[in-house]
Amino acid sequence: MNVLSLTTLLLPFVCAPALLGIINKTKAFFAGRKGVPVLQAYFELWKLLHKGAVYSRTTTWVFRAGPMIGLACVMLAAALAPFGGVRSAIAFPCDLILFAYLFGVMRFVTVLAALDTGSSFEGMGASREVAFSALAEPALLVGLAAVARLTGSCSLSDMFQGLSLGTYLHAGPVLVLVGGALLIVFLTENARIPVDDPNTHLELTMIHEVMVLDHSGPDFAFILYGAALKLWVLGSLLIHVVAPVRTGHAGLDIAAALCAMAGLGVLVGIIESCMARLRLVRVPRLLMGAVVLSALAFVLLLR
């Protein structure tokens, strides 16, 4: 592991909460407000880490273990994902499967922790989460398989090193389609509009937020930090496909990727400012669309 890998390994852990700040700043700009500081998420994490906790009497150790296991999984996923074309700290053939399944473990424990409270609201959120993610998973894996076909390798690091802006010349449509599919997966998995509204205050309409209603203190800090990391990690996949800038100089590549991440944050902010969330019954259709986009990318590659 060289210095570059180490830098890219640490980047998500340090920068991830800032991405949330960029999204919120963009939304505030569109709403004509000043908005919270970009670093607000860090302040909140700091505050939560220094609070006590309240647990429901219904809960068991499953509820307490959920946030820790979830955070550990997403941290490992962050270590698997490359950044700016630099090989990730952990890279091996077919690591993308482990990558996808780590998110599966995270979802599994989050859902169980939600069910552990015995609250019908949390059950509702949990049931929606599993329904939507069951469709998001094929979209993600088939999209990544299309990239694997394009680059002839199936390790995340090799795949994304094999892409460059030049790829657009001979396989532009493929990248655009996979990018579209990954954008939908990104928005779904991170509970953003149009699938879920992170700002809603009505428990009945929430998905992700309602599952973590009962967590407090350090547990909730783990959950928030895990969510920020997940946003960053899945976002980095997306920008690798859509904007694979390769200058030949690693520092420049990383800087370009950071700019692209910021751009992604602005894009999410714009989407959230311009769109309302979809009705719940329409969400599966959107996800089906993502699966079809991934599959289309594949059809283009087969020809």
Partner: peptide, 9 residues
Amino acid sequence: RTVGAAGTW
């Protein structure tokens, strides 16, 4: 810190 127990929200 204080760790409390309560009913589910």
